[in-house]
Design a protein around this nucleic acid. Sequence first.
DNA 1: TTGTTTATACCAACTAGTTTGTTTGTTTTT
DNA 2: AAAAACAAACAAACTAGTTGGTATAAACAA
Lengths: 205, 205
Amino acid sequence: MARDGKPTRDNILAQSRALILENGFSGTSIDHILERTGITKGAFFYHFKTKSVLAKALIEEFAREDIGHMERALKETAHLKGDALSRLLLFVQLFIDMMSDLTEPPPGCLYASYLSETNQFDQEIRDFILNTILLWRNTLELLLRDVLKEYDMRIDVDIPSLADLITVIFEGSYVVSKAVNEPDLTAKQLQHLKNYFQLLFIPKK
Amino acid sequence: MARDGKPTRDNILAQSRALILENGFSGTSIDHILERTGITKGAFFYHFKTKSVLAKALIEEFAREDIGHMERALKETAHLKGDALSRLLLFVQLFIDMMSDLTEPPPGCLYASYLSETNQFDQEIRDFILNTILLWRNTLELLLRDVLKEYDMRIDVDIPSLADLITVIFEGSYVVSKAVNEPDLTAKQLQHLKNYFQLLFIPKK
DNA sequence: TTGTTTATACCAACTAGTTTGTTTGTTTTT
DNA sequence: AAAAACAAACAAACTAGTTGGTATAAACAA
């Protein structure tokens, strides 16, 4: 055997993610990444054949974490399956809690970063982002349809678009957070989503 | 005098905005802009001394339009000053109507585009974006405080963050719209904001 | 009306530096 | 011994920006 390359690879991923969230993908040169990681060009291209291979690895890692959060929240609310509204509210609350711990604004979302220069990426990456967004939609839709078995809506709304609202609020909060320096902004915005759910649903008579 | 340069300048602004919304600012080279406008490098640098001068002109034009929409909505709801909740709801409805007319997803928001590679821009531009976002916050806050004179809230919420929600939903919708091809997505998301306002406020007894 | 002037608007070619990626070989680590 | 990383040079394409000159059209003079 030989020495372990994983720390180097992980470092490239971490530093380039941070750089891309501040400078964009096109605005992040490989030389910048080398400077930040302290490695050489040879090492970089040993781990990633091209810059777009790095782009793909980054978005896949990001999506893994993202979906991981979603699945963890599903698990941690599974005990409330009998009370679908409580489950939905706790599901949102878990993300409020997660975003409340921050001492500075969130670093940003790589989906939004890529989408803001979407032509720089191939169809495979664009479809990958689309599919993770649709996974969020489908997951929330399931939670919402469970609620509708026992609850009516005070105002009749389109369920898929209501399912999208959590993604919209996350993405929007991240954008606004990049402008205003308020670490609790995302948590507060998610609280509005929770409020909306609370107000919208009323037990069937 | 000599020939009129305004059409050329306007064309540069229009084409570069479109390019930047798809490729990002760093991802949009001046050569790309020349290709799209059909002008030469000399003409470009005659109108904009540097690329960052273009960046500033673009964001100023975009903000002018953005604030124009806001002020128009304020004017068109001014007749409801005596009924603050109706005014607020109509204010949102005007933007729902605006976004309902679309036959394809909105082209995107230049604030979000710039913020996603925020380090590429100087403090002046970043402050400029911040101030337009804060103008939206302050404007909505005024509308909301008027409502609170006659209405209580079913759930007690932080007013500045409630004011931010319209910006958050706009920005988030634009992000998600870049992934999913649904022209009515933004209108539907704004409808949730309107619903939330409707559900949240209850006349003082 | 006609020719000349003049500032603006624009063009074509060039420059200096940066970009991604390659190559060749050496050194370190396990 | 083999993987992982370094070092340094190189190439081809692309980058923002410059230069010197030309076309255009209004203003002015004859």
